[in-house]
């Protein structure tokens, strides 16, 4: 019998007089210390991610309305709320939320994976037949890791520039076309977006379960939502490398 102690919602009960009463940890930390709590946090940070990839995809589509339009949009992102909010203030607030959400999402995934490995140290010795767990749900960890690697590459390519053959700051249209004209880079973007689709297909459904949003009225729609969301984001994103490689956009 393996006995692990996970700081639970109950926390440690202080015995009066026995020990000086310890200040309890912040409630949210106790909550995050439990696996059910971590999954709720993963769902919420996942929702942040869903919002980001959707808006990012919609913004990307501006390459179809011309170079000026996309570059202006890039500039506008720096100026949201200006002059009330200082330049890039809103952008950095959104970036901060996103970065924190991603870090927490990754930490929760990592620590739950450790917990799950401990829960079955010796696996099945015979072949295992899955009947309900689909490819997407069983590869969440790997699609997650690969997406994280892709994001690093993506930042070096189109945000910071070192991975881009001809990077000019402030000219996203030019940078995009320069980078994706390379066949292998276009291939990386296509594969990464298909992986994103798998990750979204499970995540956008799973978050409802993790947060307890389950009701016969809409249960069927949770799956439709996940399929539609993944399909729309992936289709929108995939169109761009395809358009650039095929020469429709240059």
């Amino acid at each position: 019998m393996v006995s692990r102690t996970t700081p639970g919602g109950g926390g440690a009960v202080a015995v009066p007089g026995a020990h000086p009463r310890q200040r309890p940890r912040l409630w949210l930390l106790d909550f995050y210390g439990t696996a059910v709590g971590k999954k709720a946090v993963m769902a919420i940070t996942g929702i942040v991610g869903l919002g980001f990839v959707l808006v990012h995809m919609l913004g990307n589509l501006k390459i179809y309305t011309g170079e000026q339009h996309l570059n202006d949009y890039g500039e506008y992102l720096r100026e949201i709320g200006s002059p009330i909010i200082p330049e890039t203030g809103t952008l950095w607030l959104l970036r901060a939320i996103l970065i924190v959400a991603v870090l927490i999402h990754v930490h929760a995934a990592w620590s739950l994976t450790q917990m799950n490995r401990r829960a079955r140290p010796t696996g099945y010795q015979g072949p295992r037949r899955f009947v309900a767990a689909d490819y997407a749900s069983r590869t969440m960890r790997w699609t997650g890791v690969l997406l994280a690697l892709f994001i690093v590459f993506h930042l070096f390519d189109l945000t910071w520039g070192p991975a881009n053959p001809n990077f000019t700051r402030g000219e996203p249209y030019h940078n995009l076309v320069e980078s994706l004209s390379r066949g292998w880079v276009a291939a990386i973007y296509i594969v990464a977006n298909l992986l994103l689709g798998l990750h979204l297909y499970h995540g956008a459904w799973s978050l409802f379960q993790s947060l307890g949003w389950n009701n016969p009225r809409f249960n069927l729609w949770r799956r439709y939502f996940a399929i539609a969301f993944a399909a729309v984001v992936v289709a929108g994103n995939l169109s761009i490398p395809i358009a650039i490689v095929s020469g429709a956009v240059d």
Partner: peptide
């Protein structure tokens, strides 16, 4: 629910909604 979840997590893994 607090007590049972806490006890459960002392022994078992975590749910990732595989539906298996």
């Amino acid at each position: 629910v607090n007590a049972m979840v806490q006890r459960m997590e002392e022994h078992f893994g975590s749910c990732t909604n595989h539906r298996e």
